[in-house]
Amino acid sequence: MSSLKAFLNQNVKVITSDGRLFLGTLEGFDQTTNVVLSNALERAFYPDEPKRDLELGAFIIRGDNVVCLGPYDEDEENNIDYSTVFADKLKSTKNAL
């Protein structure tokens, strides 16, 4: 089984079907991939200005909207100079063609 159990209480990044990125601590999940994050942030990248973070607090993402979810390395993350990272918005998974 590809359970999310191994990722519990770790800091994770979640990409959702509308192309947004959330960071937070994985507090819980169920078999439909509903996930609960604590200390959640939404991180937005822009093509011409540095990324921005929006603090959200506790956050539930309904399973159908989860594209992928993975724990990230805290040290590696903290060493990244995000002032030079630019990117376009991710595409939605719906009607993307």
């Binding site: 990409i15 991939t33 993975g70 724990p71 990230y72 390395d73 805290e74 993350e77 990272v85 991710l90």
Partner: peptide, 18 residues
């Protein structure tokens, strides 16, 4: 470079429907 969203992520859970 194109998608910095998953920087520092090593292992990843992917939802089958996506």
């Amino acid at each position: 470079d194109k998608y910095p969203h998953l920087i520092a992520v090593r292992s990843l859970f992917i939802r089958g429907s996506m």
